[in-house]
């Protein structure tokens, strides 16, 4: 599932549940629709609520990085759980997207964006 929040020029996509080949494509569609329809220069993919991820999640991050780069913005991965951070490290994705740990970002605050 994806919950989207727009805050000035930053779009935060809070991902939750399992990310695999089956679930990644609908997440991709939802995020891309929001990215294309908002004047943003920063996309934050919040992984704090993700329960499982395989390399499909890496494909998801790489694809969103590509899209936001084409639009002149930057991509950031926030708060992956330790085991997911391990999969990310293995892929070298941090060379494309900064991985940040805030531990305070909430996926449930106001400002939810309906798409």
């Amino acid at each position: 599932m994806v919950t989207l929040k727009l805050n000035e020029q930053t779009l935060v996509a809070c991902l939750s549940g399992d990310i695999d080949h089956h679930t990644a494509s609908s997440m991709r569609t939802e995020i891309d629709r929001a990215v294309r329809s908002s004047p943003i220069n920063r996309l934050v993919l919040d992984f704090s609520q993700v329960s499982f991820m395989d390399s499909s999640g890496i494909g998801l991050v790489m694809g969103r990085y590509k899209l936001i780069s084409e639009l002149g913005g930057v991509c950031e991965v926030a708060d992956p759980p330790p085991y997911i951070a391990k999969v990310m490290k293995l892929s070298g994705i941090e060379r494309l997207c900064e991985i940040t740990f805030h531990n305070s970002r909430s996926c449930h605050t106001d400002g939810e964006m309906k798409v």
Binding site: D54, S55, I58, G59, L90, S91
Partner: peptide, 11 residues
């Protein structure tokens, strides 16, 4: 085109 990262075997 399906955004497969090509990392399955590496994982």
């Amino acid at each position: 085109e399906e955004e497969r990262a090509g990392l399955g075997f590496a994982v």
